[in-house]
Design a binder for these strands. Structure first.
Lengths: 210, 210
DNA sequence: TCGTCCTACTTTGCACACAATCTGCGGGGA
DNA sequence: TCCCCGCAGATTGTGTGCAAAGTAGGACGA
């Protein structure tokens, strides 16, 4: 699990998250091996790992596919996020240095005027930074397996205007709460943030499946 | 990831949970391959999977070891359990049929008079049954990665009498709450249950490291 | 005597080869 | 015409070989 395997995990994950492979797309071992320039062995390990993260599904003797999500599964993922991410946010508040807060503020403000295509990356950076500040690997790890799903499903293109504005305002407000040194406030906003995202994603998923 | 690989995952996991391998013990690929009667390839996949579950740690070019836990990491795991398991318990309550409740009741009562060595199995069965009833794969999966740690660290032998009695009483009370159809009650008891276990485990870990 | 370097061994990491399983398609029968 | 069976192609699952990385032990020099 060193060079080639590790690289393969990251590469495939990135390919999926960037949308190169659509949900449900087959991930042939030989295909990926050629694309990454390694043999099938590290690709196998990468797929097994991504499967345990929930990003791909492996059916015995039938190969790996990019996971697709039912509405029910999607709601479950948001239940999990709602259970963990607000707590992580609260934990992050007392750990944040002024420099951290400036960085988060910068990210939050850049998102307000960013192009829709850049939002995904900035959003990941913001939430990732917050989770890192919480300094709680166990919860962060538990969350990591779930956090991908909504990103895979859709990017921000699907947000309606009101929801998007709310979402961006939440980021800014979380930073404000952290500056005020108020974990409960930050936690509450993050809770609202996730519920807002849930509403958007579930609506989209319903429209898709309809 | 079918026959041999899957078996290897379960076998190694079971070996670790049963305490056949101590925390920190080396897990050589050839050694495990011979023990399980398969080649190194499925063993590799099994170790990679268990690593993503957190049960083993893989150091590049130096092989796999059974994870060992610092006090801080142990507390983190209990934070995670405290965040998820009470919610799962609350979700389980409305889903439980009378037959389910009878089974849980049976497990909880058997634990009261069981031998210490049998408690581990019964406890896993009780919590497993509860989690299954919650019917929430995402949260259950997130929890699964963490639930192993305390079991690995110590079995019930280390419980002091008062804590053990509390723990067993909690199980009975959770069933009672479920019978009453009161999710909030069950959730609260489970929360207490986990905090009680945390106190025991942390004390033990401190004594060990001292 | 202690420190450093070198050598040999052990173990993992990767690639490749073979076997088992599954899917799709075509032919034959009802 | 429809269904079932069987065959061929493709793909995964597993075993094994080889090379690289790391570790341990000893020998040599200061």
């Amino acid at each position: 699990m060193t060079r080639a395997s590790e690289r393969a995990v990251d590469s495939v994950r990135e390919l999926i998250l960037r949308g190169e492979f659509a949900a449900g797309a087959r991930l042939g071992e030989v295909e990926l091996a050629e694309r990454l320039g390694v043999s099938r062995t590290p690709v196998r390990e990468a797929l097994a790992r991504l499967a345990s993260e929930g990003l791909v599904e492996i059916v015995p003797n039938r190969g790996a596919r990019v996971s697709s999500w039912t509405v029910a599964e999607l709601e479950e993922v948001f239940d999990l996020r709602a259970a963990l991410e607000p707590r992580l946010t609260a934990l992050a508040v007392p750990n944040a240095t002024p420099a951290d807060l400036d960085d988060l503020d910068d990210l939050a403000r850049r998102m307000v005027r960013a192009d829709l295509d850049d939002l995904v990356g900035l959003n990941r950076a913001f939430h990732g930074r917050l989770v890192a500040l919480a300094d709680h690997p166990a919860m962060a790890g538990a969350l990591a397996g779930a956090i991908h799903a909504p990103i895979v499903l859709r990017n921000f293109h699907a947000y309606d205007d009101a929801s998007l504005r709310r979402s961006l305002a939440h980021h800014v407000e979380i930073v404000a709460a952290a500056r005020a040194g108020d974990p409960a406030w930050a936690q509450a906003v993050m809770t609202a943030h996730i519920h807002n995202a849930r509403a958007v994603m579930v609506r989209i998923a319903r429209e898709d499946s309809a």
